[in-house]
């Protein structure tokens, strides 16, 4: 699973341009399940298990990552851009980006030596940022990129002990877990969606869930962990190494308490997400059709939405085991 995760993280698939990750996933799962691609580009897969449960169970992970989209080109050949999904200015400036997976650029910044007064102590305005691809004219720039092209911030995949440092852990971790579940034998049938456009408003999951019409949904995600220096215990949300984080409430969803309790009593290492913040595809999924009983199983990630996110492989393993346990328990009507 970690080999797959590494390959997934190194692919570039900002929202709206999920093709690279989609193609890779199809290559991985095609011999193990039925699947189709819907109008928006979601992969909707069906895994035939040994038994067919009465309830329809859906597992979801999103394929897209946060990124940038080119909006215009200056006369000197610098590219102006908008963000795709939420990225802080501080984790964009002085970073390398890759546009269309093949043109390297840099989000430049006036040297601190030339800043006057408080200028060097404040973040530049997001709309003053630009990408420098090393060309000298607008024409040269437009021979390499077009308006509407997307980019991601570069970040290599590094393994350090039990920790992984990479871009796009949100939500390639979910994708890697879901691929593993599809590739192995299952006791019960389940549906899997690899969804598009989560980072721009949970849009792919909305339509994919409508298509599947599940009774239960398990969202596989990455979530903010703030267990870092100088953060008080009650604001840490969740902790790396303490297992998968299970949500009771976030800004998009009040979760099904039965599923939440089922997860926490599983005996598999897991923890409550202890802060009402963020959101994920559950927000769209639990409101699909007449409503879907939904649980979110998240892997704690430090520095999420930056190109240097950090996760613990023990938590990835917990999330995988917990997802498997939940399929089994839901199918066997333990909730």
């Amino acid at each position: 699973m970690l080999k797959t995760l590494e390959k997934l993280c190194l692919l570039n698939s900002p929202s709206g341009d999920e093709g690279a990750v989609r193609d890779f996933i199809i290559g991985e799962i095609k011999d193990f399940c039925q699947y189709r691609i819907d109008n928006l580009g979601n992969i909707i897969a069906f895994k035939k298990g040994k038994n067919t449960p009465n309830a329809k169970i859906l597992l979801d992970a999103h394929m897209d990552e946060v990124g940038l989209i080119i909006t215009s080109v200056t006369s000197e050949g610098f590219l102006k851009f908008a963000t795709v999904g939420g990225i802080d200015t501080a984790v964009m400036i002085s970073r390398r980006v890759i546009i269309n997976g093949n043109v390297t650029g840099v989000i430049g910044l006036k040297p601190v030596h030339l800043c006057h007064g408080d200028e060097g102590k404040k973040l530049p305005k997001a709309d003053s940022l630009y990408i420098d691809i090393g060309v000298k004219s607008k024409e040269e720039a437009l021979s390499l990129v077009s308006l509407g092209d997307t980019a991601v911030i570069c970040g290599d995949y590094v393994r350090s002990g039990d920790k992984i440092l990479s871009k796009a852990l949100d939500d390639r971790i979910g994708c890697a877990i879901l691929i593993s579940l599809l590739k192995e034998e299952s006791e019960y049938d389940f549906y899997a969606t690899f969804s598009v456009q989560e980072e721009v408003g949970l849009r792919g999951a909305k339509v994919a869930t409508f298509a599947v019409a599940p009774d239960f949904a398990i969202i596989l995600e990455g979530t903010t962990a703030a267990d870092i220096a100088d953060v008080a215990e009650e604001k840490q949300v969740c902790n790396l190494g303490n297992g998968a984080a299970v949500s009771f409430m976030d800004r998009s969803t009040l979760y099904d308490k039965g599923l939440y309790n089922l997860a926490l009593s599983s005996g598999i290492p897991c923890q409550s997400k202890r802060f009402v913040s963020g959101g994920n595809n559950a927000g769209a999924v639990h409101l699909s059709r007449e409503g879907v009983r939904t649980v979110a199983v998240s892997v704690p990630c430090r520095y999420i939405h930056s190109a240097s996110s950090v996760a613990d492989i023990k938590d990835i393993d917990s999330a995988y085991k917990l997802a498997k346990y939940l399929i089994l328990s839901i199918a066997e009507k333990k909730v």
């Binding site: 703030a226 870092i228 604001k235 913040s277 963020g278």
Partner: peptide, 29 residues
């Protein structure tokens, strides 16, 4: 330039080289 540090990767030259990353403040904080 401190503004460029959040989530920036570094190498710590200890007894061996160690990959590190500057903390960035999570959105809820």
């Amino acid at each position: 330039d401190l503004r460029t540090l959040p989530a920036k990767r570094v190498t710590v030259h200890g007894k061996e080289k160690v990959a590190g990353v500057f903390c960035s403040t999570p959105p809820h904080l």
